[in-house]
Design a binder for these strands. Structure first.
Lengths: 191, 191
DNA sequence: GTCTATACCCAGATAGAC
DNA sequence: GTCTATCTGGGTATAGAC
């Protein structure tokens, strides 16, 4: 049985993703948790505080996710496949709400919100993990660039699938990503 | 000297791009135009009406833009280069506010706003124009898929450049897009 | 820790004078 | 066609009883 604060952050995380940060009100979150608006402020002073808590929650979950992939898959290519597979697994949600990281950063950029760099850290976690896989494949100085390229392509797929409400597009384009990956490192080694 | 209605749509177009649709208030737009809030409703009944007008403005401008490229560039490859060049030319704005089309669609999807399909038409205009170029290159049934791929990659570049506040990334990745394009159609013909 | 009540502000939207 | 004045609702945030 989780404590109230955790329930609030959990509900906020979900609603911020589904409806966006600004479009989610305290009342929305309170209704999900089954809490009065007044009691809300015992746990969080401002809406920005909830946002920080949500980003921190996502950061720790991302860490766990990436560590899990590193344990379960034993070659860099298999690990990169896990990243791509995540998009396919989440395709129904991506189609409806886009990428949780990308759409949050996009919104915070428009708001000129001070939490944008913190949200960007979510990208950075993936970036460094992906770059580590490319480094293990022997890409040296190109590893970070390839990580960014893979991140960017996944963002583009999510944005278009969301705009066109098209889940099949995710399946097609992730397959293309796998082809690209194999062409890049056919034997698990760089050219 | 443009009429008031045009001024309103112009100001709304700019503010919706820079701050987002929901985050822009009537007061914000009225302040730019130098109009009282009350007078606003003589020109537009609801905020959604302004959004529709903004999308229509963008659609007609996109048409003009694409027709201009078709006139100025005489080969499909040159025309596709114009599309890529647009990103480089607008890189300062993309870095700060993202892609005007992509970020609008992302926001409207979160709001479950009925204007999302209309905003998606902006993507469709580019999609069809790009597909026409790939068709001229002889790609036949693959043309639309390539158009979507190019659109998706440009969206990814915009999202990452915006999140990381990185203009250099746009320059790098658009260069990669040009390389990809040449590899795809080395002699202006498909493989 | 949780509640009700409420302050305060700003949003979208309307009425009616000029 | 533009203005001022105003309504109404919802948002964040606070005070204080239980």
């Amino acid at each position: 049985m989780p404590d109230t604060r955790s329930q609030i952050v959990e509900a906020a995380d979900k609603l911020f993703y589904e409806r966006g940060y600004e479009h989610t009100s305290f009342a929305d979150i309170a209704a999900v948790v089954g809490l009065s608006r007044g009691n809300f402020y015992y746990h969080f002073k401002t809406k920005d505080d909830i946002l920080e808590a949500v980003i921190d929650l996502r950061k720790s979950r991302t860490q766990v996710l990436l560590e899990g992939w590193a344990e379960q898959a034993h070659t860099p290519i298999e690990r990169l496949d896990r990243f791509i597979g995540m998009m396919v697994m989440n395709s129904p949600k991506i189609r409806r709400h886009g990428c949780p990281v990308g759409t949050l950063c996009t919104e915070l950029a428009k708001l000129e919100h001070p939490a944008l760099p913190n949200a960007g850290m979510l990208f950075t976690l993936f970036r460094q993990w992906l770059a580590a896989q490319f480094t293990q494949l022997g890409f040296g100085g190109k590893a970070d660039g390839l990580a960014m390229q893979l991140l960017a392509r996944s963002q583009g797929i999510a944005t278009m699938a969301n705009a066109f409400d098209d889940e099949e597009f995710i399946r097609q384009e992730t397959e293309q990503l796998r082809v690209w990956l194999r062409a890049l490192a056919p034997t698990g080694q760089p050219n």
